[in-house]
């Protein structure tokens, strides 16, 4: 009776957005008379950070401080159509729609400033701190606030913008599966270290290392939220979760959180992540979206690590102690495989 350590890896890519396109997102932006902006959407924040991602994208594009932008979502009377928050489409699709809306609003803002400064709008830049000035001549400047006031009360201009982003719909060839699927792909590779007890069949995840390529990271703290939480869900899918433990037999299903197993706060493992950024040609500032893929490499990496530890291939998820013990028995005992580098 012993505990065996093992290490496994997996590498994946992930398509961003609804597979065949045809999934538009719209955004509206307008300014108060003092240059404070509201982004009106119907996008959904279910924890992934839609509100903050679009807020940062809007502030960056408008060229104003982040405090000067709030995102109002989701009210169908004020926020225009959006397909929804799924398929890792939020940052990519809605981010681009917000850029388009913010660009239009920024165009009016600069026109209004140009009129006040009596210069050409094309010569103006924003400093991201609430000022607009002539390129190369910071002294010839006007605040966003004064510009918005002039636009509203003097010039009669609406500092507002509309945006839509649509990847056109593709068809699919029935015989070959030829299609124009997603346009942006994120990438990852993950290494899992586990310990398997050959007496109880229990698997403990000792630690994980990963590299994620996500295009431009819009907010690193929120990327970390997704990747850490998603890896937890990956461990949970790999080792614990199932509503039908003997699928396709539908019996013995859990009814509540006492029976539906998930790792608790005491079951988490150290996790070290490296972020690579290869901007997506069609992403907002090159952004892609880590929301769904963050669990995916964990499942096979753990399965491969279990094999490396005790020589048992579990091809049916979840990898329960019962399946491991049956495998060990069929093999006539644990069969540890080759050690791999700096395994824990």
């Amino acid at each position: 009776m012993a505990r065996f350590r093992g290490r496994g890896m997996a590498s994946v890519n992930y398509p961003i957005g609804m597979n065949l396109g045809g999934d538009p997102s719209q955004a509206l932006i307008h300014s108060n008379p003092d240059g404070k902006f509201t982004v009106a959407l119907s996008a959904i924040d279910l924890g992934q950070g839609m509100k903050q991602v679009t807020r940062q994208v809007a502030a960056e594009t408008l060229g104003v401080p982040i405090e000067d932008v709030y995102v109002d979502t989701a009210d169908s009377d004020t926020g225009p159509h959006d397909m929804g928050s799924f398929a890792s489409r939020g940052t990519h699709r809605m981010g681009n729609a917000v850029i388009a809306a913010a660009r239009e609003a920024r165009g009016v803002l600069l026109e209004a400033a140009a009129e006040e400064l009596e210069v050409n709008a094309a010569d103006l830049v924003t400093d991201g701190k609430g000022n607009i000035h002539v390129k190369g001549a910071p002294s010839r400047s006007i605040t966003v606030r004064a510009t918005a006031q002039a636009a509203q009360f003097k010039q009669g201009k609406t500092i507002a913008g509309r945006g839509i982003f649509l990847i056109p719909l593709s068809s699919v060839d029935p015989e070959t599966g030829e299609m124009n699927p997603n346009t942006a792909f994120a990438h990852a590779c993950l290494v899992a270290d586990v310990e398997v007890d050959d007496e109880t069949g229990e698997v403990t995840v000792l630690g994980m290392n990963s590299a994620y390529e996500l295009g431009r990271v819009i907010n690193p703290k929120m990327v970390e939220q997704q990747l850490v939480g998603g890896a937890w869900m990956g461990i949970s899918h790999a080792l614990y979760e199932t509503p039908e433990p003997y699928y396709p037999n539908p019996d013995h299903g859990p009814r509540d959180f006492n029976e539906y197993l998930m790792p608790g706060p005491g079951d988490i493992a150290p996790y070290s992540i490296a972020i690579l950024e290869r901007p997506a040609p069609d992403g907002p500032f090159g952004g892609k979206g880590p929301g769904e893929m963050c669990a995916n490499p964990v499942l096979p990496a753990i399965a491969n690590a279990v094999y490396n530890a005790v020589g048992v291939r579990v091809n049916d998820l979840p990898i329960t102690p019962e399946k491991i013990l049956r495998g060990i028995r069929a093999n006539g005992g644990a069969k540890p495989q080759a050690r791999r580098g700096g395994a824990l």
Binding site: H187, A188, A211
Partner: peptide, 14 residues
């Protein structure tokens, strides 16, 4: 993908 595999191997000392 290749770069992700290379970096993960480096991090894990694989």
């Amino acid at each position: 993908l290749i770069e992700c595999v290379q970096v993960a191997a480096e991090k894990a000392r694989w």
